[in-house]
Nucleic acid binder design. Structure first.
Lengths: 232, 232
DNA sequence: CAGTGGTCTAGACCACAGC
DNA sequence: CTGTGGTCTAGACCACTGC
């Protein structure tokens, strides 16, 4: 028993929850009671409860007590890297086009900017074993320090493209995943002759004031990519 | 400034990280220094640092110090509910088949069971506005207390199917997402006459000893579903 | 050895719930 | 009012690191 006391408290309560001895909505014994039960000071008990709060097992209401939380059954941790996925990896990227453009109305709207502000457009192809596996299209609000040198852009992930002008920690991202059929242009780029589905991943990057700074769509050959996630 | 001191400490350090004044790998000032700087006791400083550890900003090494963490750029929180997604919801489910079967070798292997153990097979269709939008296929290890009453199964999510026999908190889940073309059977079920891609979501459920207790695959019409996630 | 973080105590005062 | 959780103190001892 090298474990600290608060870990014991955490494990005991987890076990009670997992065995349904404590059900969602039930009250956890008050801190004072746990102090007595384990013969420890209140700070030690609170450290244990803090861990349970963090892991989503319980929540506390000041003045009332601590309660067993309803589990968040629909939340998963998804691992997504533009150029690496569990069944395949991009080994080469080729720049099709990089341009500074004025956004059309739809794009200006999505980026919460105006039509007279510069936007960098990047179009790339990703390759695995010499074969094109994904078509990638990004739009970035132009700001100083951005890489517009082709060499720098070619192999960069979305994060890396903006990280020159802002620290990566301040980035918020949204992602949305869907399945589509390829249009003629994408069929050409990805050498698709038969029927093949695309996995489409849209990314939107925001700064820490929640202003969008870039959007991107990557179209993956369905036989190339598999995204994976987990919960607990 | 109604905020407690430790929140102030958290915000100050976050700001330093976000502004690149502290870069990944840099040392955070030792606790004793922060105590002096803020004129508070060590426990208060430690509470602040604990939050930063939890949020992935820093990590601590006993005997050495605390360091700024490299951000986990590839982790997203994905919201996935079999019957609800951001652009649509299932309003009706129809049971195609429920059966107790003996698994073939591949299935027995995936469920880490043997071919003489009972497995429940469930096949369903999900509907939105009267039209079929997804075909769902699940295999559950049979255990006592499981719902094999058709009424109960029809509208149940994967979690709910097993929650009678085990508390939902003890569930671990893996999910994998891909895009495929429908086969003839699925085309029939989902009324697909043209070219339409499927978004395929595989789920695998484990108990808290990491033994698989069920696997399921749901085939969604690509024009029906969009999965969404976020980071930060 | 001194400096670091990890654990823990035995108090304190506060704001808030509910009676 | 009592009981609850939230914040905070001023110490303590430990194990580990690096010199």
């Amino acid at each position: 028993m090298a474990n600290p006391v608060y870990i014991k408290i955490v494990e005991d309560i987890k076990q009670k929850v997992n065995s349904a001895e404590l059900k969602p909505g039930d009250t956890v014994p008050p801190e004072a009671a746990l102090c007595k039960e384990y013969g420890v000071s209140r700070m030690t008990v609170r450290k244990g409860l803090a861990i349970l709060v963090n892991e989503g097992y319980i929540f506390s209401v000041p003045g009332k007590g601590s309660y067993v939380q309803k589990p968040e059954v629909n939340k998963y941790t998804l691992l997504y890297d533009e150029m690496n996925n569990p069944i395949n990896s991009v080994d080469k990227a080729r720049l099709l086009e990089v341009n500074i453009i004025m956004p059309d109305e739809k794009l200006a709207d999505e980026l919460q900017t105006t039509r007279n502000k510069h936007v960098i457009m990047i179009r790339r192809l990703f390759y695995t074993d010499g074969a094109p596996v994904a078509y990638d299209n990004k739009y970035l609000l132009y700001s100083k320090g951005m890489p517009i040198v082709e060499k720098e852009i070619e192999q960069a992930t979305f994060q890396e493209m903006v990280s020159n002008s802002m620290p990566i920690f301040a980035l918020k991202k949204k992602i949305s995943i869907s399945a589509q059929m390829p249009n003629e242009e994408i069929k050409r780029y990805l050498n698709i002759y038969d029927e093949l589905a695309l996995l489409v991943v849209e990314q939107k990057l925001y700064n820490n004031e929640n202003k969008p700074i870039g959007i991107g769509v990557t179209y993956y050959r369905g036989d190339y990519i598999k995204l994976q996630g987990y919960s607990e």
